[in-house]
Design a protein around this nucleic acid. Sequence first.
DNA 1: ATAATTTGTGACATCGATTTCAGGTCAACA
DNA 2: TGTTGACCTGAAATCGATGTCACAAATTAT
Lengths: 322, 322
Amino acid sequence: MTNIKEIAKRAGVSPSTASRALSGKGYVSEEKKRRVLAVAEEFDYAPNLNALSLKTGITRRLGLVAPAFIESVSLFTGGFVRAAEENGYTVTLFMTGSDVFKELEALEALRRKQVDALVFVMFQSELSVIAGYTKYGPIVSWQRIVHENVPSVFMNQYDGYMIALEHLYAQGYRRICNIYGAPIRLNTQSRMEAFQDFCRKYDLDPNACPSFDNMGNTRHGEQMVRWWLENGRIPDAFATTNDRVAAGMVAEARRLGLQIPEDFAVCGFDNLDFADMLDLTTIHYPVNEQAGNAFSIIRNRIEHIDLPLRPLKFHLVQRSTT
Amino acid sequence: MTNIKEIAKRAGVSPSTASRALSGKGYVSEEKKRRVLAVAEEFDYAPNLNALSLKTGITRRLGLVAPAFIESVSLFTGGFVRAAEENGYTVTLFMTGSDVFKELEALEALRRKQVDALVFVMFQSELSVIAGYTKYGPIVSWQRIVHENVPSVFMNQYDGYMIALEHLYAQGYRRICNIYGAPIRLNTQSRMEAFQDFCRKYDLDPNACPSFDNMGNTRHGEQMVRWWLENGRIPDAFATTNDRVAAGMVAEARRLGLQIPEDFAVCGFDNLDFADMLDLTTIHYPVNEQAGNAFSIIRNRIEHIDLPLRPLKFHLVQRSTT
DNA sequence: ATAATTTGTGACATCGATTTCAGGTCAACA
DNA sequence: TGTTGACCTGAAATCGATGTCACAAATTAT
């Protein structure tokens, strides 16, 4: 391989001078500079990034840690990689499958200087474990958490859920059934608060209709429809955990010959790819921009600057299920 | 940072001995080994990977180059990352947005030893440009190409398309309309051949029904349905470019009050995520395993071994649209 | 008893860059 | 004329690991 010494020799200068010529830092006579550049060009010189990383202690590589690369994680990844590449950073993937040990490997990669910083899309580890690694480089989380040294780019789902509820109300639906995810998650708790406040605002009985916990996938949506058909009068509308649950409900309803939104309305959450195909009303939020903010936080810490973060909002995408 | 010199000093040995103790290569007395390991443990030593990469010329990092991270690219990425991580490699992403210049940057990363090898999920560059970089490390393509130095893990879509056609025939459909993608692509040409052979086998007129080119997204599918309603008797069944086109047809048919598969049948291709939600009959192929094969090819070249590749097959996923 | 081999150790070179430092030239200025 | 500062250069140190080599001691083989 042609290294800088080789170039220096062929140009008849010392490596120091060659380095200065190539990097443009420090004094070099016009003539030698020209010669070095010409030789570098001729011999197709490209600096070895590992040498550079070793010398400077900076890799310009960021690690993205996620359980898998599906759905909105892919979106986030795309947004993060774009932001990173635009600023001369590169992104290295760590796929954990929600395995704590794999998460630890990503953290170790930070310690061993394989990457300058990490962004956790989601994690299972104790927050304190992750925070313990911040001394080796910035760590940011997409998952909603509260910790002094580990900033999170989450959005408060209170607002998003409220938009969904207000929309259902505006469409005339009054008996609304909530289908929630895991109650332990802060996002779920925010949604519950939103519902309480919503009922108070419009003077509705929050217990008029039972709500459901720990629902998250298509099968759950299907079950939901069947449960209601067997156990009483179906609600006017459903506010759901996410688009998967909503999709399951729509599919099952169609199979059973029910009309949506006539027999019942459904609002999803996330605005995943397939929501469009299924013509699903849903709540959209800008995953791309969240990823951009995650990158900005990291860059701020690494380069000691102070880029502003973009303020982010939920919005309703109305389609034919409400 | 604690480096190996520090550890050596504290353990009262030379860096060479410390290195031998830690790596387990070469002779070290039991006693010194114990001491070094104890000190390393105590001071939380972790070797600097950049130093290692510089010294050995090996990074154990692979580059994955793709236009964006959506749909099957995500699947491929997931499979590739899993295979890589299982074997102690790490994956770095390069997102090109189909920009030739960005593709070049990925190639340059290979040259500068940021990664040991590259896999192109898709590319726009001249094949010769890419092949020119194989001297810096193995390069594999998912996109179907033919080049001595750039192996490709494509599957011949002749087989997959034939399965679709045979299925439609078995279901009793005789007037079959082909909706193709870009005719310039080898995959499209293979499908056309499959259709010719199919017609010959069952003594059907290949021109009984016009076929369509350059179709690829949901809108195209919708257009297709409307075109047929305006321009003559709708075919018995459609064999489509991919699930997006098929999804568009299904959605539009539903909107227009047509029954599927009674009014016409549709078979997709790819078995994307949403095919399940839309209950779409489609052709599945193992993207994960393709990614695994891509990794195996790379590993074979890097480590000079000869892992076998997994033979891969298409199969039909029958749902309610045929 | 001697030769050959195994075991054990540290000094030093190396990977490929940058950066510090010391020293040199030259022009401008007091 | 002496001083100052800008410009230019190369030797050598540095980043953090590994690996070669020379040398010594202990063990085994002949």
